[in-house]
Design a protein around this nucleic acid. Structure first.
Length: 953
RNA sequence: GCCCUGGUGGUGGAAUUGGUAGACACGCAGGACUUAAAAUCCUGUGGCCUUUGGGCCGUGCGGGUUCAAGUCCCGCCCGGGGCACCA
């Protein structure tokens, strides 16, 4: 029998499907293990070879765990709501549901082609009403809860209402934007709308006026990344901030727990760091400065209260509400001028060139500790969105304040002596306090504590923790997303739909363009919007992160219509043991998921605080982009392409780089990648506008269908410029895994992707070495069948060497899988198969085990071989072999013997030699004597089973 | 600027706790089989020197610790990613 991957793979895929080999039960005595992939957004481009990298790794791991006796949950689904489908609908009129469904079909075929062990009976799609019913429900639950900082968890809002009825809001410690206090009597006197407004400031899902990027010309609201330099990325139309009521999630309530939780999970340090930076916790003090001659106080936030004696001026953000009031008559003109200058600067300008700018208000504040008058300035380096939008400036201990003070000639008082800390920078919190009254001589950390105490005693402020993390904007003015399960009463108060009325289904429409004034397309559907007597519906929809924030829980019990998942299912599967996905989701998806999960934990609906115990980021597989050079000067109306090599030689730089479909390029990715005549013809057929163009190569010119060589060149060689970059439709460099599978088989594809290198590393796609992996599979097969198709497997007893090679492989492969080093697993297989070929070993006792070891990597081929070995059940239901130490024992050990750290000899010694014997024999070795002769042996280091080092002097 | 990563042959990469640097594969060179090619198999393959015994150098650069450093410490350089007036 010959190794024919096409037939074998087809055969076993069918078998697995018919036998439901990968169906997983929630009812099992085995320990559970949950392996999850980040589910894909089904884009129109389909899967490229980069997508499966992580899926293959997780599939190998899932299959390995299964062989090790675990009940493994390994599901897959689709993140199916999203903007691309909606944009496609606007362009083509194809309903997003239809295009999404088509794309999913295509994805499914591609995934099936690779032999994954997904339990497809558990598939979820975020756009399925049966699924988003529960996305909507969790949202309503967020609405019905507030975050109680005393209990440190989410509590039903009804509890808060009873507290307000009894005590007002003075006793409650909650995550809220409510600043004014009120008594029980006040509360009772509030109107319904006032009460609702107040509660809104406590809810975990709340509505508030927010700002969106409104583009009048496009008639739509744009996402932040669609706005560049104050204009729309597409078309370059002006974009303004437009106020709109928006739903938000109070993510900030969980900031501390989101930060602390990172300590408990096994994620890469870089990922944790990104999340930590994003949360951006800082400890400091919030305090008030009096204004000279005015009743107003300025509230500031500082992480360095210890430096308050060096606070010689204050700065307000240009948008600060007190700016106008504080500006004196004499400064009014100057201030107006400054504020309009600031307005003229876009976000990008401000980031790009950090000029030191500012203007004096004319007013003075009183430093509460020195009681001196200090000037109040306005400057754009202070941001309204962080802290309180105002700072006390300490030019001696803050770089920005220092630069500012130097430019405007403001006083600088040194307050921290850092002479004991050479190398410490200005921002390091170290040093001894000077010029600082009662804290003089204290170390910085002690001084911070001391000043905080004093601030609180004086009643001018409190110690406070601040976060960079912002609440999550949750409204999108789009069609293709989850509708909010909300109706508004005539007085504008929001009411959540009860569970019985969920899901609130997305209404049908065929017009996906934005509605009036940037509203969602849903706003046009007045029958739907005006739901029942005077109530109107929310027309915005949820963002794509909504559905992906909890999908991993739905897989546990995907068809449950009474709960997002049953408590039995959730308690059995608990959490995700291994999560594999790209690091581009480092912030949004992973932060929201953790937040939702913690909320569900507070409600007692999930048993763990963190959803993803271990997370692996797979690297990106990049593509090679092939460019040809088109000269920008058109002569005689003819486009002129020039070989990249010629351009370089002649120093030509005035060209446009035109990406070419990589299928036309010969030696794709190599230094001499080029277009032959055939390639140029294909290119012209693809881009007919270049039909008459001239293609100039060093060896001739191609034009109008013919190649005119200089000299005797047979074919054109238009060198293309190769560049590593994203694999993307727009660079025409997407490689479809189906094509690779067609040529080499899925098993080979899987093995090859793993063999490329460590899973976390990014690398360009290069099939040059796929032949090595393909050869390995054929060699493996050749242990079972010879070239004439004769079955070779026998029942002879394995030799010592064979057993040793096998058990070494068992040990190494298992260890390598456990540490996600899949590339080295493939190497180990190769080493083992090479040895077995050398030993001419066709013994069942060896091969049977080897088949199981390879099964997670090459599931189809091993299934065939397993059945050829006479088994009736699937190899994927076998048990992983245990390695036995006894087979690995060596009679002798090869010792490198070094003299002064340099290896001089390699000698076999019996494995049971003692240290003394080893030392004696090493010193007696002929080669070693040559190096030690005439010198004194000072020391001999013997590490049993490792090496011997002789120190001479 | 700050934080996180990584830097090893012609190439992808290996070396798990400091203990034989370059496993495994690609590529290349030579050979076998063949009329020939493909496929397959075998041998060699870090650089330099060499009297063919071997020697010297070598993991981005410069120092250090150690009997021993790709691995640990200090100071740089370069690539990738994140954050970026965060008080």
């Amino acid at each position: 029998m010959e190794y024919n991957p096409r037939d074998i793979e087809k055969k076993w895929k069918k078998y697995w499907q018919e036998n439901q080999t990968y169906k997983v039960s929630n009812d099992s005595d085995k320990p559970k293990y949950y392996v999850l992939d980040m589910f894909p957004y089904p884009s129109g481009a389909g899967l490229h070879v980069g997508h499966p990298l992580g899926y293959i790794a997780s599939d190998i791991f899932a299959r390995y765990k299964r062989l090790k006796g675990f009940n493994v949950l390994h599901p897959m689904g689709y993140d199916a709501f999203g903007l691309p489908a909606e944009q496609y609908a606007i362009q083509t009129g194809v309903h997003p549901a239809k295009s999404t469904d088509d794309n999913i079909g295509r994805y499914r075929d591609q995934l099936d082609n690779l032999g994954f062990s997904f339990d497809w009976s558990r598939e979820v799609r975020t756009c399925d009403p049966k699924y988003y019913k529960w996305t909507q429900w969790i949202f309503t639950e967020l609405f019905h809860h507030y975050y109680d900082q005393s209990a440190n968890k989410a509590i039903p809002i009804s509890n808060l209402v009873s507290t307000f009825e009894k005590e007002g809001n003075v006793t409650t410690k909650a995550a809220t934007t409510q600043e004014e206090t009120f008594s029980a009597a006040d509360w009772k006197a509030f109107s319904k709308a006032e009460k609702e407004d107040t509660l809104m400031r406590y809810r975990l899902a709340y509505r508030e006026i927010g700002y969106v990027n409104w583009c009048e010309a496009l008639g739509t609201v744009l996402a932040n990344d669609q706005v560049k330099d104050g204009v729309s990325e597409r078309g370059g139309y002006p974009v303004v901030q437009k106020a709109m009521p928006q739903w938000n999630l109070r993510t900030t309530a969980y900031a501390e727990r989101l930060l602390d939780g990172l300590e408990t999970i096994d994620w890469s340090s870089s990922l944790k760091t990104i999340q930590r930076n994003w949360i951006g916790r800082s400890e400091g003090a919030q305090l008030f400065f009096d204004v000279d001659g005015l009743a107003e106080k300025i509230e500031i936030y500082t992480t360095r209260p210890d430096t308050i004696f060096g606070a010689t001026y204050m700065v307000l953000a240009p948008e600060h509400p007190l700016v106008e009031q504080l500006t004196t008559e004499g400064q009014a003109d100057a201030m107006d001028k400054y504020l309009s200058y600031v307005k003229s600067r876009s976000e990008l300008d401000r980031m790009a060139d950090k000029q030191v700018t500012g203007e004096f208000t004319g007013a003075y504040a009183i430093n509460p500790f020195t009681n001196t008058k200090i000037p109040i300035w306005v400057a754009e380096y202070v941001l309204i969105g962080y802290g309180t939008g105002a700072i006390m400036a300490v030019p001696s201990d803050d770089d920005r304040d220092k630069v500012f003070a130097e430019k405007f000639g403001l006083e600088i008082i040194d307050v921290v002596d850092k002479t004991d800390y050479p190398g410490a920078t200005l921002s390091d919190k170290v040093g001894k306090m000077i010029n600082s009254d009662f804290i003089n001589g204290m170390e910085v950390p002690d001084a911070i504590t001391e000043v905080c105490k004093r601030v609180e005693a004086m009643g001018i402020g409190t110690a406070k923790v601040n976060y960079k993390l912002r609440d999550a904007g949750f409204s999108r003015q789009r069609y293709w997303g989850e509708p909010f399960p909300i109706v508004y009463a005539e007085d504008g108060t929001a009411e959540m739909l009860p569970l019985e009325e969920l899901p609130l289904e997305l209404p049908e429409t065929d017009d996906f363009k934005p509605g009036q004034g940037g509203q969602s397309p849903l706003s046009r559907l007045s029958d739907w919007v005006n739901s029942k007597d005077g109530y109107t519906r929310e027309t915005d929809t949820m963002p794509a992160v909504a559905g992906s924030s909890w999908y991993f829980l739905r897989y546990m019990d995907p068809h449950n219509d009474d709960a997002f998942a049953s408590q039995d299912a959730v308690n059995y599967w608990q959490d995700v043991d291994l999560y594999v996905g790209g690091s581009e989701h480092a912030v949004a998806h992973l932060m929201y998921s953790r937040f939702w999960h913690k909320f569900l934990y507070d409600k007692g609906l999930v048993p763990t605080q963190e959803p993803f115990k271990k997370l692996i980021n797979q690297g990106m597989i990049q593509g090679v982009i092939e460019f040809i050079y088109l000269l920008k000067d058109i002569q005689d109306g003819v486009n002129h392409f020039i070989c990249a090599e010629l351009a370089k030689k002649r120093g030509i730089t005035n060209f446009a780089r035109i990406p070419v479909y990589i299928g036309y390029v010969s030696n794709y990715g190599a230094a001499n990648s080029h277009l032959t005549q055939e390639g140029i013809k294909q290119f012209i057929e693809w881009r007919p506008e270049f039909k008459n163009a001239k293609f100039e190569c060093p060896n001739g010119i191609f034009q109008n269908g013919t190649f005119t060589p200089n000299g005797d060149a047979m074919d054109s060689q238009l060198i293309t410029q190769s560049e590593v970059g994203k694999m993307s439709k727009r660079y025409f460099n997407v490689v479809n895994p189906d094509d690779v599978v067609e040529e080499y088989g899925a098993d080979c594809f899987r093995l090859f992707e793993m063999f490329l290198g460590p899973i976390q590393q990014s690398k360009p796609w290069d099939t040059q070495s796929i032949g090595g992996v393909s050869r390995f599979l054929k060699r493996f097969w050749s242990l079972f069948y010879n070239q004439d198709g004769k079955y070779l497997v026998n029942d002879e007893a394995p030799s010592k060497d064979e057993l040793k090679a096998l058990h070494q492989t068992i040990k190494k492969v298992a260890e390598n899988i456990e540490r996600f080093s899949f590339n080295t697993c493939v190497s180990e297989f190769m080493i083992c198969v090479n040895k077995m070929i050398e030993y001419k070993c066709n013994k069942r006792a060896i091969l049977e085990n080897l088949v199981i070891l390879v099964a997670p990597f090459a599931p189809h081929m091993t299934e065939e071989l397993w059945h050829q070995l006479g088994h009736e059940t699937s190899v994927h239901d076998a048990s992983y072999p245990d390695y036995k130490e006894e087979y690995l024992k060596e009679d002798s050990v090869k010792y490198p013997i070094s003299v002064n750290g340099k290896k001089r000899a390699l000698v076999d010694f019996p494995a049971d030699f003692t240290k003394e014997q080893l030392e004696k024999e090493a010193l007696a070795n002929e080669t070693i004597i040559k190096w030690t002769e005439g010198k004194t042996v000072r020391k001999v280091i013997v590490v049993p089973n490792r090496m011997i080092n002789i120190v001479v002097g």
